[in-house]
């Protein structure tokens, strides 16, 4: 009887130590734009637009357009990650960063289209390719 009590206490103790997985679906306040410091040093993101493109079948797709203005010759990599309305990633065509080169004083406009109508939010990341 005593051993049963001890075993029960041990099980309860271990259960208490276990980390509970996060099951709350509350959205983390995710930044739509993330620019690495190396890029900020040479270029600015001057515009960031998002809109839903209406399609002939009545559906729509999220589109993102952003502008980058370079103060000096800049090479950058950019990538848009798409999320559905509960914050889960919507897989795109590829995973790699798209490369872009900007000449001094040049402003370039980039556009990305969500891979599925399910995508409702995004995160744009700009980094300097090594």
């Amino acid at each position: 009887m005593k051993s049963l009590f001890l075993a029960s206490m041990l099980v309860l103790g271990l259960a208490g130590c276990a980390t509970q997985p996060e099951t709350n679906s509350t959205m983390i306040d995710r930044q739509e734009l993330r620019v690495d410091p190396e890029v900020v040093y040479t270029a600015d993101v001057t515009e960031l637009f998002k809109s839903r493109l209406t399609l002939p079948d009545g559906g729509s797709l999220l589109q993102v357009q952003f502008a980058v203005e370079a103060r000096s010759h800049t090479e950058l990599g950019w990538k848009v990650t798409w999320f559905d309305d509960v914050g889960m990633v919507v897989k795109g065509v590829g995973e790699s960063y798209r490369q872009a080169t900007l000449l001094t004083g040049q402003t370039r406009y980039f556009k990305a289209t969500a891979p599925h109508a399910r995508a409702t939010s995004f995160q744009l990341h700009l980094r300097e390719p090594k």
């Binding site: 493109l53 002939p56 559906g59 797709l61 065509v93 798209r98 891979p115």
Partner: peptide
């Protein structure tokens, strides 16, 4: 990957693949 991404995004946004 770049060519496929460009093609698919353009196909989807052009409405060409929307029945």
């Amino acid at each position: 990957e770049k060519a496929a991404t460009d093609a698919v995004e353009d196909m989807l946004s052009s409405g060409a693949v929307n029945n």
